[in-house]
Design a binder for these strands. Structure first.
Lengths: 107, 107
DNA sequence: AGGAAACATGCCTTGACGGGCATATTCCTT
DNA sequence: AAGGAATATGCCCGTCAAGGCATGTTTCCT
């Protein structure tokens, strides 16, 4: 079972997530058509996304509807949050520096 | 040249970034010691991180100091932002639902 | 100058991943 | 029951990444 970061490393998988974000609850066929990938590929990528906890499946007769699972992003968010804090502080420092260097002005 | 998501997929590389976040500007030897990885491995991971734009090198004599490059995370943030918007909306919806289902109460 | 320190890099091997094809599975239709 | 639709999965193959080892490169020290 691979983790979330691993799942997000693949462009096709991010594309699938984007597609679901625009319209959640698509069935495999729709994704295949919209992304121009093979059905095999899409199914496999969906499996990875499911194992990573990023999507859920809803069985509907012979088709399966895929839904985003927001909690799946939690792990990413948790890792990213401290880093965001770090870099925002850095940008603030830069802004301060610029303010002191070019008071009341832009560079 | 691999992209940021690819770079972040490797646990060792995230560990390096964490290490730099705690104390920015470490030299390779420090990272090797603190992470318990081989020097070869660390150097290679640093190369990937540099190519991804996540760190910069500062040459200091025979050692090289590595610094976080916050702008590198931009790509991740840009991709993530719409998704965060999505899942926060979902959580709000869930909260609303709970509020209507258990008014003035917790479940 | 000679040697050690601190990193980087080339080579090799192993393992994992993604793609495609064929096939299995499940369900619907008639 | 039979056939077809919608997905999943097993297998094979090519590619690529990660780890380890040895070696190269640059810089410092004496």
């Amino acid at each position: 079972m691979r983790d979330v970061f691993d799942a997000l490393a693949e462009p096709a998988r991010r594309a699938i997530l984007d597609e679901l974000r625009v319209r959640d609850g698509r069935v495999v066929g729709e994704l295949v058509e919209r992304l121009g990938l093979s059905q095999t590929s899409v199914s496999k990528h969906l499996k990875v996304l499911r194992n990573a906890g990023l999507v859920t499946t809803l069985v509907e007769g012979q088709q399966r509807r895929y839904l985003l699972r927001p909690e799946g992003m939690r792990e990413v968010e948790d890792w990213l949050a401290p880093h965001r804090a770090f870099w925002e502080r850095r940008f603030d420092d830069l802004a301060d520096h610029l303010d002191r260097t070019y008071p009341e002005e832009g560079p």
